[in-house]
């Protein structure tokens, strides 16, 4: 199934990935090749099979609702590109 450059652009936007124009054709070809491989799945009738999301099919574990972590905002913000007064700084997007 061919993938058009406009589709690559749309998917890249949904995934918030900046892709250079020169690279679009390469991604389109690779995606088409990968989707052709994936297409092999359609050969098997699975209408009677339930989807399996997780290998162990385990239930979520509950824990007591008690404090078990301390606040380490300063530590965690040390790895942030830009902070001020304990806030993460991003370009203004609400006027």
């Amino acid at each position: 199934m061919p993938i058009k450059k406009t589709q690559v652009r749309e998917i890249a936007w949904l995934a918030r990935l900046a892709i250079e124009d020169e690279a679009m054709a390469g991604y389109a070809k690779d995606m088409a090749d990968i989707l052709a491989l994936v297409e092999q799945m359609q050969a098997v009738d699975t209408s009677a099979v339930e989807p399996l999301a997780h290998p162990l099919e385990i239930a979520a574990q509950l824990r007591p609702d008690s404090v078990n972590e301390e606040n380490r905002r300063e530590d965690f913000q040390q790895t942030a590109p830009q902070t001020r007064d304990g806030f993460y700084i991003v370009p203004r997007f609400v006027e």
Partner: peptide, 15 residues
């Protein structure tokens, strides 16, 4: 449905 759910169904078959 065609891709993700299909793959999950086949995951059960493989398991």
């Amino acid at each position: 449905d065609a891709y993700y759910l299909k793959a999950q169904r086949l995951r059960r078959v493989l398991r």
